[in-house]
Simulated scan of single mutants.
Amino acid sequence: MNKLILLRHGESIWNKENRFTGWTDVPLSEKGRDEARRAGELLRSFSIYPDISFTSLLKRAIVTRFLVMEELDRLWTPAYKDWRLNERHYGALQGLNKLETSEKYGAEQVHIWRRSYDVRPPQVGDEDPRYPAHDARYQMVQEKLLPHGESLEDTVHRVLPCWKERILPEAEKGKTILVAAHGNSLRALIMMLQNLSPKQIVDVEIPTGKPLILELGENLTVLNQYYLG
């Protein structure tokens, strides 16, 4: 049966510092690099070898994929990058320490920004360097599509076309696929594949560096799922 491997990148330096990261392109911490290598070891121990990979445009996902495939000795397999697999854009929260933000705005408000389905965080302006139009890697994206700050719902609407246009056709060929991405972009895929409601998906947590295996049957329905390790 088809296998779809969903892997949240290893711990980043801003995960370690408890900061909102979003589209900020921060590197993995040393622990995060170890988590990525361990993910590769786990896949090898279960004889799960991706035929093709997809990542976001953010280095923490790209490097995670590289380290996994290096462990599997499959760096030669195709890898595709797509901005639509980026993490949720946290708007004006990006770069802020989560605890300090709670102290400033109140824990309840920050919880709403973080865990609700359809509430956006405070938006960045067009001149803010956190607005993706200022980043060269997004020059090929229509500016009207670039976010100033996203809810989880916005992220879902961004990720699903990527699934339909790029990942699904490979799954339909029976390939084993690795998607190395981010907590919220992976939740978007899980929501779609498992037909979860907005209320259900907000409670789904995805740990860093642990491969989630989805075994897909006919019509790519999820027959089984489990974390390795």
Results as ranks from 00 to 15, higher is better:
Thr101Trp: 01
Arg115Thr: 01
Thr155Leu: 03
Leu85Val: 15
Thr55Ser: 13
Pro147Val: 09
Val68Tyr: 07
Pro147Thr: 10
Phe66Leu: 13
His148Thr: 11
Gln139Ile: 06
Asp135Trp: 15
Pro78Lys: 02
Tyr49Gly: 04
Val156Lys: 01
Thr55Met: 09
Glu87Phe: 07
Trp83Met: 03
Gly95Arg: 00
Ala79Tyr: 10
Arg44Gly: 12
Asp118Ile: 00
Thr64Leu: 11
Gln139Gly: 10
Leu152Ala: 04
Glu103Phe: 11
Thr55Gly: 10
Thr77Lys: 12
Arg44Phe: 08
Leu85Trp: 15
Leu145Lys: 05
Val159Trp: 05
Pro78Gln: 03
Ala136His: 15
Ala92His: 02
Arg130Phe: 06
Asp128Gly: 02
Trp83Phe: 10
Glu41Arg: 15
Thr64Trp: 06
Val119Ala: 00
Val68Asn: 09
Glu100Ser: 08
Pro122Trp: 13
Leu75Cys: 06
Trp113Val: 04
Gly125Phe: 01
Glu70Met: 12
Phe66Ile: 11
Leu67Val: 09
Leu145Gly: 04
Leu43Tyr: 09
Val119Glu: 02
Leu146Ile: 03
Pro122Glu: 14
Ala136Pro: 14
Gln94Arg: 00
Leu58Trp: 14
Leu43Gln: 10
Tyr117Asp: 03
Tyr131Asn: 07
Leu72Gly: 08
Gly106Ala: 07
Thr155Gly: 01
Arg74Pro: 09
Glu70Gly: 10
Pro147Trp: 04
Leu93Tyr: 03
Leu43Thr: 09
Arg84Gln: 12
Arg115Val: 00
Arg88Gln: 09
Phe54Pro: 05
His89Trp: 02
Gly91Tyr: 04
Tyr49Gln: 04
Ala107Gly: 13
Val119Pro: 00
Glu70Thr: 13
Gly91Cys: 06
Arg130Lys: 14
Ile112Asn: 10
Ile48Arg: 04
Leu85Ala: 15
Arg74Glu: 07
Phe46Pro: 02
Glu71Val: 10
Gln123Trp: 07
Val63Ser: 09
Ala107Thr: 15
Arg130Ile: 05
Glu100Pro: 02
Arg60Leu: 04
Glu87Ile: 08
Ala61Met: 14
Gln123Met: 12
Ala133Pro: 03
His148Met: 07
Gln94Lys: 00
Met140Ile: 04
Pro122Lys: 11
Tyr138Val: 05
Lys81Ile: 09
Lys59Arg: 06
Trp76Met: 11
Thr77Ala: 14
Asp126Arg: 13
Val68Ser: 07
Pro78Thr: 02
Val159Gln: 06
Gly149Ile: 05
Leu146Lys: 08
Asp118Thr: 00
Asp126Ala: 12
Phe54Gly: 03
Glu71Gly: 11
Val119Gly: 00
His111Glu: 12
Ser53Val: 11
Pro122Arg: 13
Tyr131Ser: 05
Tyr80Glu: 15
Ala107Cys: 13
Arg74Ala: 09
Arg44Trp: 11
Arg114Asn: 02
Arg137Leu: 13
Gly149Asn: 07
Asp128Ala: 02
Gly95Leu: 00
